[in-house]
Design a binder for these strands. Structure first.
Lengths: 229, 229
DNA sequence: TTTAGCAACATTGTCAACAATTTAATGGCT
DNA sequence: AGCCATTAAATTGTTGACAATGTTGCTAAA
């Protein structure tokens, strides 16, 4: 008799967040209360609370009397997310180099091994989740839980952004061994190089986004405007 | 017949946030649902939602079956808040100098005038609120709403920290004309000096905190320990 | 065929009653 | 008085019914 303790709103939140991180929940997906209630076996109250929290983190959008949909960050949102990530992660990396020790390096190495393994097993969802988690792991070394929490939000939003504007949709966000080389530099105590790799890493990902036109009112206007000349 | 539209959870949130910013709501203050319901004329549902949001912003602490109290940041929290503020505000200031124009400077000047006037009228609550808002106003010039929102959280938390650990409790957090000199430097396009003033400003405030012992179990142990030798 | 209006349905929002828990108060007892 | 247990009051948590709103599908008229 498995005494299953009732799930709370945090559980629902992190479940949804994980699906977003894995890109198994696409932007725009409608989230009805009823379906989530039955999926997680919780009451509407809990789902409702989860919605409120996820809205705060820009993971879903809540419209009065219309319910919740997975957020669709605009190109401008994307710009701000990457700008914030460069600022935060750079700063946190510098803080981290002060506190870092052998155990930390080992933990990063272990994580990299997990990434590779997921990739080898073609478990893409897991791999995507892990590449996101790498940045959070790195942030935790800074010793600033507050900034860490904020970065988490940004990582989740990045996943939505890549889902919307990523070149191939799922695959190549954190490839190219950037993570490995970053850890190498960290181990050598070469903060400067580590910072450069990190910034370049983020800028590269951002530069590969393609803001193609999407179906919306705005785009309809554009379409008819161009058809008129 | 003033058709007063019903307040929602955001209204309740910002009302509470403002009181925290003004330091009229001290850390540890109990917030009962009933009292807030009657004060704002809303149902328990709304208050409850507001609580959830405020918890997310570290403005109140919510304990199961025990209700909500205004948050009491620890000294470590304080350290992280100021560290994050230095990082964020510095970065946002740099972004701001790229976009800034005459209107922006004028808006800052107007704000400074408001600050002075509040101080002259001895409207301390208003003055405290304005000094906090100055930093938010500055952040808005960066053109990054995301980082701006995060900084807002930090400013509110700073108010709690000063209420707890500030030397005189209410008065001298943002004095000394630092704000004026900062705007001067901005107007001259002297980003470097502006940045130095800002960082120094924050570091000064932090260094003036005094983490005196507070009444709690931990402190009781300490007190009796020192009495034993 | 298209469109406007209407009706049936589904989903979300609100509220009040009830349950669970904590906090305050009462009353013996040493 | 001071302390502990028990009871009463107050506060928070949860649930379900109902109201408000949005959505879908249908009919009929142009």
């Amino acid at each position: 008799m498995s005494k299953r303790t009732a799930l709370n709103e945090e559980d629902v939140c992190s479940a949804i967040r994980d699906r977003v991180l894995e890109q198994r929940l696409a932007p725009g997906t409608k989230l009805t209360e009823e379906s989530l209630c039955s999926i997680f076996g919780v009451g509407r109250t809990t789902v409702r609370r989860a919605f409120l929290l996820l809205t705060r983190d820009n993971i879903i959008e809540l419209e009065k009397n219309k319910g919740a949909v997975v957020a669709s960050p605009t190109p401008e949102d994307a710009r701000q997310v990457f700008e914030a990530r460069r600022v935060l992660e750079q700063a946190m990396l510098e803080k981290a180099t002060a506190n870092i020790n052998g155990d930390d390096i080992k933990r990063l190495r272990d994580h990299l091994r997990d990434e590779e393994e997921a990739l080898r097993q073609a478990d893409i969802a897991r791999w995507i989740r892990l590449t996101g988690r790498f940045h959070i792991l790195l942030a935790q070394l800074s010793g600033n839980a507050l900034m860490c929490k904020f970065l988490e939000q940004l990582v989740f939003q990045t996943s939505l952004i890549i889902a919307l504007y990523g070149r191939t949709g799922t695959a190549p966000n954190c490839k190219g061994g950037d993570h490995e080389r970053l850890v190498d530099a960290l181990e050598d105590g070469d903060t400067k190089t580590a910072g450069e790799i990190l910034t370049h890493h983020l800028t590269t990902i951002e530069s590969q986004l393609v803001f193609k036109a999407r179906s919306s009112e705005q785009d309809l206007h554009t379409i008819f405007a161009t058809a008129n000349d």
